[in-house]
Structures are given as structure tokens and as C-alpha cells.
Write a protein that binds this DNA or RNA. Structure first.
Length: 586
DNA sequence: ATAGGGTTAG
């Protein structure tokens, strides 16, 4: 039953010998004779400092104590110089300098943070060689690293093995790590059952554990269960704190349950738990997403009155809210006011504004801001380029877009999959099918992380350019290579068939997607109905109209317009749609 | 253990 991953293999072979020795083998004769080494380590400000201090240290006689080395490593890790940690560690090994468990765990963690769990596992033999026992921290670090690579199954298998074979007793931190890893990857059910397991066992859930589960439930929109759990933890004598309440408030904001948000605000304040900048930002974000940006600004003023300072997230959220409803002048105010408050706009602030301008087709203003970025000492990133590329294609400035892309290749960040999708979409939009396909063929070979969205751009582009067969061939290839089709991909293919009047094929795809557990949404139905309307197939249109209204979907603007056009040309069609007739009488 | 924000496809 248990799948042995390549990560498990080294681990399993160590287990046989690991508990035979638990004596730490570092020499106590290597003491730190020179005072001030600790302060030297504390004064390390950059990678250079760290490396040169390390080289000083290894030349000292006697050698500094192993703890000094581990402190230096810790400092380097905090500065995120993971690969440097690894190479200095290798140097220590080569020089035969004693190490301890902290250093090894540090190396493991560095590998994990570099997304190299395979290398992290290769550190385990060094524990054995030096007779350093594994502990719960080592394994927790490894589990976190496995999760970071999204290998949920492997992480869970390791955890289960540790428990089942009694290799180490999981503590609250290990449970929290596993549960956090699971919940952040959509496995709320499993997270909840681990909580229930903990309640039965000897390591009881603490406030962190409850908060992880409550947050997961809130993110899923399961507010009722989350609130039940809140009451449960209160009964267990674990009072919720600001984090717990913030998660609940965030969930309620996202559901637009503003009355309950108010209730929880008063509940927490009554318990002397005060909302912080996180809590307020969640409320502000919820309001902005509902288009209530003015209310959001009022909340910001309220938080200032309460002595909670808005941060860059607050400002960016409100700016984005204004951009989304096209109020660029307001967004620009907000932008200026953050500068007044000595909060430097970051690349996100710029991207939000640039995107706002592009969506209003004001590409020149967007470009002006783009130029401002480097003047202000910031740097455009790949998203900045992607936003502008899309904006240029949107207004038909193809030559400009190409030039901009070339400029990016020579001086800017590396293009990513979105860049290429945007480029392909632009080419197809203006009928440059050959150019698009030659780029696609090149990319398909050399790109590792091609996703369904990228293929969808190509399928859509081929369909729109009358190349249905080619599109369908790629579409069929996708399931073959094991790429999971999503509702958009299916809808694109359905639309392709509808555009050619091939309704049997379109309906076939519709059946297939449902059979594969991918359910048609509002856009899917509108695409089909539009297809029938364009061919004046009214009775079939009516069938699907009934089906979609039965599922709670409705016509979008394009569909409505098509229907009006059909009716204008042939008013008698109305008699064929009794549903619309009765609506009209009302 | 909690917050945000930008890009592509129907």
C-alpha cells in the first residue's frame, strides 16, 4: 500500500541504525578563546561579511566552538543565503571541522528552502556518521520542505511512518506543520481529521492548531463549521486570539456577511482583543471586491483614528479597488497620499496603476508610469511587462508590442509562461497564425511548466482563425499527455465547434466534460446558446436556455444582444420561446 | 497560525 518515494528510501535505510547511537561527538577542546566572536557574528550584515568571518574562523587556532559556527549559519539563513550555507557547510566537512545537529538542521532547512528536498535527505547520512540523533525538529523541517514542493503524499507518508514506527513523537509544531501543509493545499478535510485525531491522543491541539483549521474552513467558505470550532476551542479552555478572529472575519467579509463581521468585531473588542492592521486590511479588501471602495476608505480612516497605521497593503488594496471600477483619478490620489505618508510605492503599486490604465486602453499613460518606475529607484518585473504587452495588443499596437518584447528580452526580466501566452494570444487576435504557431512549436518543446491556460490560448486562437481541426487535435492531445482540462478549455473547444455550426460535436464535448467531473458554468452555456442563436436554431436554443436557467445561470450581454437581433429580424420567433413570452406579460 | 496586490484563455 505505501508508496515508497525516492525521498523515503535513504530515510528508511537510516532508521535501522539511527537509534543505536545518540552521543554527540563534537570536541569541547575547540573553544572560543577570543572574546568578541559572538559580536562579530552579530555584526554580520551581508553575505560577504559572513563568508569572510567564516574564513577567519576556520583559520583560528584553536578552532571556535561549534556553536559559533552554528550561529553564523543561522545568521546566513536569516539573510536567505541558502546556497552559501550549503557551500560553507561543505567546506567545513572538507576541513574536518566538527559539526552539530543545529548546523545539520540548518543545512537541511536551507536545501528545503531552495526547493531541493532530495539534497536535504542526502544530509541524513551525516547525522549517522557523526552519531548525531535525529529529532522532531529535523523531521518537521523535512516535512515542511516536502510540502513546499507540493508533494503532499510524500509528506503525509513520512509523517505517518514516523508515528507508526514510533521513530519520533510528533509535537504540536510537527502537527501544525503537517496541518498547515495540508490545509494550504486544499486538504481541509484531512486537516480537520488530524485535529480530531489530536483530540484523542496525548498531544492536545493548541491555539495554533485550532487557528489553522479555522482558517482553512473560512477559506473554503465553511463559516458555520468554523464558528462551531471556535466555540469548541472556547469550551476546551483555549481562548481565541486576534489571529483566530481575523480568519473568521476574513471569511465573513469574503461572503459579504457584513452584519456578522460587526458582531465578531464587538465580540473581540469586548474580550479586549483589538483588530490590527491585518484585520482591517481584510475588511478593506472585502469591501473593495464588492466595489464599495469609498466604504473601504472610511474603514481606513477609522483604523487611523483607532491608532492602527495603514501599511502598503492597505493602500495597494484601495488603489486596486478604484482601478477595478475604472476610477483611475481616485486611484492616483491614493497613490499620491501614500507618498505623502512616507510609504514608498512598491512594484505592486505601479503594476496596479499601470494595469488600471491599460484596462481603460490608456496605454500612453501606462507607459509614462512605466518610465517612472526606474526613476524612482524601483524595477519593473515580469508582471509589469506582461500587463503592458497585453495592453498594447488590446489597442492594436502590435509593432509597439513586439518592440517592447524585444526590449524586454535584452534588458528586462526573463519572459514567463504568461508572457508567452499573452504574445500568442496577441498574434492570434490579429490573424498572425503562422507566427503564433511557430512560436508555439518552439515553446512546446523547451518549456517545462506548460499549463492548461497556455494550451487554451492556442486552441482558442486556432478556433478563431478557422483552424478547428488543428485546435481539436491539440485539445485531444491534452488528455493524452495527462493535462487536466478545466472548464475554460472545454468551453473554448465547445465554442470552436459552435462557430462552425457543428453542434453535435459541441454537445459531445459538453457531455464529456460533465462525465469528467468538470461542470459547465455560465460562460459555457452562453457560448452554446450563442451558437444556436447565430444559426437561428431556436428550439435547440430554448432547450439549453431551460437547462441553464434551471441551474441558476443566465444570459450575458452578448447572448442578450444576439437574441434581440434575432427577434428584430423575425418577431415570430418569440412564439417559440414561451418562457420569454410569460416574462414579457409580467 | 491571520492580511494585500498585478499578467494570459472561454
Amino acid at each position: 500500500m505505501m508508496r515508497i518515494s525516492r525521498h523515503d528510501i535513504p530515510f528508511i535505510s537510516f532508521f535501522a541504525t539511527s537509534h543505536s547511537s545518540s552521543i554527540r561527538l563534537y570536541s569541547s577542546t575547540h573553544s572560543n578563546t577570543k572574546l568578541g566572536l559572538n559580536s562579530n557574528i552579530e555584526n554580520v550584515k551581508c553575505l560577504n561579511d559572513a563568508v569572510s568571518l567564516f574564513h577567519q574562523m576556520v583559520r583560528r587556532k584553536p578552532l571556535p566552538h561549534v556553536v559559533s559556527f552554528s550561529k553564523l549559519f543561522k545568521t546566513m539563513q536569516n539573510m536567505k543565503h541558502y546556497s552559501a550555507v550549503v557551500s560553507l557547510f561543505r567546506e567545513m566537512q572538507k576541513l574536518g571541522i566538527p559539526i552539530n545537529g543545529y548546523i545539520l538542521c540548518n543545512v537541511i532547512n536551507s536545501y528545503c528552502l531552495m526547493h531541493r528536498v532530495d539534497c536535504a535527505f542526502s544530509v541524513l547520512p551525516i547525522y549517522l556518521k557523526n552519531a548525531i540523533p535525529f529529532d522532531v525538529v529535523t523531521f518537521t523541517t523535512l516535512i515542511r520542505g516536502i510540502f513546499a514542493e507540493n508533494k503532499v503524499k510524500d509528506a503525509v507518508e513520512l509523517f505517518k511512518k514516523l508515528v507508526r514506527d514510533k521513530i519520533c513523537e510528533p509535537n504540536e509544531v510537527m502537527y501544525a506543520t503537517v496541518m498547515n501543509g495540508l490545509s494550504k493545499r486544499g486538504h481541509t478535510e484531512k486537516t480537520l481529521s488530524l485535529l480530531r485525531l489530536m483530540e484523542q491522543g496525548s498531544t492536545k491541539p493548541n491555539i495554533y492548531i485550532y487557528s489553522i483549521v479555522i482558517d482553512a474552513l473560512c477559506k473554503d467558505g465553511n463559516l458555520d463549521i468554523a464558528i462551531n470550532l471556535l466555540n469548541e476551542m472556547k469550551q476546551e479552555g483555549i481562548p481565541p486570539d486576534i489571529v483566530t478572529y481575523s480568519s473568521l472575519i476574513d471569511g465573513l467579509c469574503k461572503l459579504g456577511q457584513w452584519e456578522k463581521v460587526k458582531t465578531f468585531f464587538s465580540e473581540m473588542v469586548n474580550l479586549n482583543i483589538y483588530p490590527d492592521v491585518h484585520t482591517f486590511n481584510m475588511v478593506i479588501d472585502g469591501l473593495c471586491k464588492e466595489g464599495k471602495v469609498e466604504d473601504a476608505e472610511e474603514v481606513m480612516n477609522h483604523m487611523i483614528e483607532k491608532g492602527v497605521d495603514p501599511n502598503i497593503i492597505t493602500y495597494n488594496t484601495i488603489m486596486d479597488g478604484y482601478c477595478l471600477c475604472g476610477q483611475l483619478d481616485r486611484a492616483r490620489r491614493v497613490f499620491d497620499s501614500m507618498v505623502d505618508k512616507n510609504i514608498e510605492p512598491d512594484i505592486f503599486s505601479y503594476n496596479i496603476l499601470i494595469n488600471g490604465y491599460c484596462k481603460l486602453k490608456k496605454v500612453d499613460e501606462a507607459m509614462q508610469l512605466f518610465c517612472e518606475i526606474s526613476q524612482k529607484g524601483s524595477k519593473p518585473n515580469i508582471v509589469t511587462y506582461n500587463i503592458l504587452l497585453q495592453g498594447m495588443f488590446e489597442v492594436g499596437r502590435i509593432g509597439f508590442a513586439k518592440k517592447f518584447f524585444d526590449e524586454m528580452l535584452s534588458t528586462g526580466p526573463l519572459p514567463n509562461l504568461s508572457t508567452h501566452s499573452t504574445l500568442l494570444n496577441g498574434y492570434f487576435k490579429y490573424g498572425f497564425v503562422e507566427e503564433a504557431m511557430s512560436l508555439f512549436n518552439k515553446l512546446e518543446i523547451k518549456t517545462e511548466d506548460i499549463d492548461i491556460a497556455f494550451y487554451s490560448v492556442v486552441i482558442n486562437g486556432l478556433c478563431k482563425n478557422g483552424k478547428l481541426d488543428e485546435a481539436h487535435a491539440i485539445f485531444q492531445k491534452l488528455s493524452f499527455i495527462g493535462l487536466l482540462l478545466d472548464v475554460r478549455a472545454y468551453t473554448i473547444m465547445i465554442n470552436g465547434f459552435c462557430l462552425e455550426g457543428l453542434f453535435d460535436e459541441a454537445k459531445d464535448i459538453l457531455r464529456k466534460m460533465e462525465a469528467n467531473g468538470c461542470f459547465p458554468d455560465n460562460v459555457t452555456y452562453n457560448v452554446i446558446v450563442q451558437g444556436f442563436l447565430r444559426c437561428s436554431k431556436i428550439s435547440e436554443m430554448t432547450t439549453f436556455m431551460k437547462e441553464m436557467t434551471g441551474r441558476g445561470f443566465s444570459f450575458d450581454a452578448t447572448t442578450a444582444e444576439l437574441l434581440v437581433n434575432v427577434l428584430r429580424e423575425n418577431p415570430s420567433v418569440l412564439d417559440m420561446i414561451p418562457e420569454l413570452h410569460s416574462e414579457k406579460r409580467k
